[in-house]
């Protein structure tokens, strides 16, 4: 059964890539779970379309037939004749539904039996309105904490342990797998796997307040080697500022309220309220996927976060032009 589903999924995946390929799409699977679900989805869609066409056709035929009568036929003989088609239709319905149920259970089983040993473990905590990801490593001192952008090695299962620091969020990468709610007071377990390299985007899928709309997460799937070198970089503390502007930026950073909320590894900035900034310079995006990480966007975000994400928990910062340039330099160097 599992092999049948696998083959069916591959066939459908190939067909559907022709139909609609796209980032952030459940119909463009890049991992084994999404692939199987995609296969099932197309099967169910096909069956649904056929059933719908059958019902509508029957309805239109009935309307046509009825309108050719002179009088409504309420006779017992007519009622007797109507029994068989209704019973047949009901039986077919029951069979289709049972078949669907069997396929459901089989798919669930297939998903559950995908190999998952020696998986990489990441603990994801949902915050209003950003994602905290901690890579769990049995060796002490080798934990990595990032925000909003999660690197994983291609072709390997990754176990996600999810929770929330405040309200319910939901972690979802459509290209890879179904979603899992992150609920305060509960630890939920799910897993993902990407079979081809790429950047896979998802958005928080449980209404969590003002900026629920701007809480995106990026999963970067790369080769094992690339992942390993990324990981090693993440383990390093923040790069010390190399030029005078960056040094001045560091001073501004530490003197304004930034360390209260943000961590910069290896410095005295130890805040855990907002995302860590240790390697902010190498992020693709800012503010949970809301902005591309450019100097201009970063400037706008630092000065007026409320203008970009009204309701976000970051206060505006009143900086002079030179202070702002210095901070931008400092942060830009934190790669």
């Amino acid at each position: 059964m599992n092999r049948f589903i696998d083959r069916l999924s591959l066939l459908v995946a190939a067909a559907s890539t022709l139909a609609c390929s796209g980032n952030e799409s459940a119909l463009d699977p890049a991992g084994p779970q999404a692939a199987r679900i995609n296969g099932m989805a197309w099967y169910m869609f096909a069956v649904s379309a056929l059933v719908w066409m059958a019902v509508v056709t029957a309805l239109l035929i009935a309307a046509r037939k009825g309108s050719t009568r002179d009088l409504a036929d309420q006779s017992d003989s007519m009622n007797a004749r109507l029994k068989r088609p209704v019973v047949t239709a009901t039986s077919i319905t029951v069979l289709i539904l049972i078949g669907t149920l069997v396929y459901d259970v089989a798919t669930g089983h297939a998903l559950a039996s995908l190999p998952r040993d020696k998986a990489l473990r990441i603990e994801i905590t949902g915050h209003q309105w950003w994602w905290e990801a901690t890579y769990v490593d049995p060796v002490a001192g080798r934990q990595v904490t990032t925000a909003n952008e999660i690197h994983i090695p291609v072709g390997e299962p990754v176990q996600i342990i999810g929770s929330s620091a405040d309200v319910i969020h939901s972690f979802w990468i459509p290209n890879l797998a179904g979603k899992k709610d992150l609920i305060p007071g509960h630890a939920t377990a799910t897993w993902i796997q990407a079979d081809r390299p790429g950047i896979y985007r998802g958005q928080c899928a449980e209404f969590c307040g003002h900026q629920h709309a701007n809480m995106a997460v990026l999963v970067m799937a790369e080769s094992r080697d690339e992942f390993n070198s990324w990981y090693e970089t993440q383990l390093l503390p923040a790069a010390p500022p190399s030029d005078s502007v960056s040094k001045a930026g560091e001073a501004v950073f530490m003197s304004k309220g930034c360390p209260l909320c943000h961590t910069v590894g290896g410095t005295r900035a130890l805040g855990r309220i907002g995302p860590p900034l240790t390697h902010i310079g190498s992020s693709y995006t800012l503010a949970a996927g809301t902005l591309k990480n450019t100097r201009g966007n970063l400037a706008g975000w630092i000065v007026d976060p409320q203008g970009i994400k009204p309701g976000a928990k970051m206060a505006p910062n009143d900086l002079s032009g030179s202070e702002l340039q210095a901070i931008l330099s400092y942060l830009g160097n934190l790669k």
Binding site: A41, T100, P174, K179
Partner: peptide, 22 residues
């Protein structure tokens, strides 16, 4: 009937985990 059929689709847990809250 369209709504009923999509209902049968989302009755399936794996599919619902993609479609839920979308």
């Amino acid at each position: 009937v369209i709504g009923g059929l999509t209902g049968v689709m989302i009755a399936s847990v794996p599919f619902d985990l993609q479609a839920h809250d979308t």
